[in-house]
């Protein structure tokens, strides 16, 4: 089975987010970048499928040379090869177009994306990629079994989950549940050494246009100081929730 895992290079979940002085972009100074957590669940699932059924796992990302460290980490975790679509993306439809152009005709049986990236939180790329490749799509995927060309899936829906079946090739937007947190892999020394010599191809873009653009970023207004209420006087908390906050 040929599996493609689409990876985003994002600020670590613990990162303090700052924007450049003119608010035009994220200020990357002092920010540690990691594999998007949603994608890491997908990468781990892909490696498990490869180990149980044979095949290859390719990771792809769209970015400039600064994202290569993240691709190398995915190789150290166990991916066989990596592809970097060389450029700086502006919006989700553009990313989906470039990914589709790359993937089309490569014969991938399964394309795993994270359901969203934790930087811009778009959640658009996986579905748009499925549309462009004209293949089945399951979002918020929390369970996946493959038998031959048949996939049995579980997706999260509002307040519950739904079982589905589909025929490969397909695209999924995955999240935790695809594998458990405890199954995530930390690269070992051997993985890190072999990652250095695994293939990392740099591919030119097809030139897809962006459809949206970010004009500016700001941080939300800080909260007013907390009002502490004595644990022996919870009626006061109830009163304030009713009279001040008007939420009960």
């Amino acid at each position: 089975m040929k599996i493609l895992v689409c990876i985003s290079h994002v600020p670590d979940t613990t990162a303090k987010i700052q924007f450049t002085a003119n608010g035009a972009a994220l200020d990357p100074a002092g920010v540690q970048f990691v594999i998007n957590p949603y994608d890491e669940f997908g990468l781990t699932k892909a490696l498990q499928l490869k180990e149980s059924q044979g095949g290859t796992v390719t990771v792809v990302t769209y970015g400039d040379a600064s994202v290569e460290a993240t691709l190398r980490k995915a190789l150290a975790i166990g991916a066989d090869d990596a592809v970097r679509l060389d450029g700086v993306p502006t919006d989700a439809l553009q990313v989906a177009s470039e990914l589709a152009t790359y993937a089309d005709g490569q014969g991938y049986d399964l394309i795993i994306c994270g359901q969203e990236s934790i930087d811009y939180n778009g959640g658009i790329v996986p579905g748009a990629l499925a549309a462009k490749l004209d293949v089945p799509f399951v979002n918020a995927c929390i369970g996946l079994e493959i038998s031959g060309s048949n996939a049995t899936l579980l997706r999260e829906m509002d307040g519950g989950k739904e079982e589905l079946t589909a025929t490969l090739p397909m695209v999924i937007g995955g999240k935790k549940g695809l594998v458990e947190e405890s199954e995530l892999r930390i690269p070992n020394m051997r993985g890190i050494m072999t990652a250095r010599t695994k293939p990392l191809a740099v591919t030119a873009l097809a030139g897809a246009a962006a459809t949206t653009s970010a004009l500016s970023f700001a941080k939300p207004a800080p909260k007013a100081a907390v009002q502490l209420i004595d644990a022996s006087n919870l009626d006061e908390l109830v009163r304030r929730l009713h009279e001040e906050a008007k939420v009960i």
Partner: peptide, 13 residues
Amino acid sequence: AFSSKGIEQCSSQ
């Protein structure tokens, strides 16, 4: 954006 750590003004073309 940024999991509620940022507010973005975005335009569509």
